[in-house]
């Protein structure tokens, strides 16, 4: 019998989405910080195939490539999101694009939890409850 993959997949996506929400929150909080570069997470496909590449820490005193506790999800510098590119202060956060991202995250998270609950219902139907 094939193992049931869906719950594992769903929990990995939920984890990826919440890390992304954390990264976006960091961008929004630093929307007015001089020289701050906007960040984003690596795509979920890369997480699925375990291709997340980070800088190796060969010495404990090195700053880690990702300064957040991301649980295996890579964080990289985001491509320039706005037409004017880098602002006068050296900041690259576009507030609108970040808010679009949070909307996207919320939608995907809603889909994710809805799928999990309906799958759970289907399994409960099998055991007759």
């Amino acid at each position: 019998m094939q193992p049931i993959q869906l719950f594992d997949l769903a929990s990995r996506q939920a984890e990826w989405l919440s890390v992304r929400q954390q990264v976006v929150a960091g961008n929004i909080a630093n929307a007015n910080t001089p020289k701050f570069r906007a960040k984003d997470v690596t795509p979920f496909e890369a997480v699925l195939s375990n291709q997340s590449v980070g800088l190796a820490r060969t010495n404990p005193s090195h700053l880690s490539g990702m300064d957040m506790d991301t649980g295996g999800v890579g964080v990289e510098e985001a491509p320039l999101a706005q037409e004017i590119g880098v602002q006068e202060s050296g900041n690259t956060v576009g507030l609108e694009s970040e808010l679009t991202k949070t909307g996207e995250i919320q939608r995907q998270y809603g889909l994710n939890t809805a799928l999990v609950s309906s799958f759970n219902r289907m399994m409960m139907m099998v055991v007759g409850k």
Binding site: S18, Q22, A25, A29, A31, D69, G71
Partner: peptide, 14 residues
Amino acid sequence: MDPLTAAMKVAGSG
């Protein structure tokens, strides 16, 4: 700390 609570903390600092 899980990422969602962390996100709230970061936004709070903002």
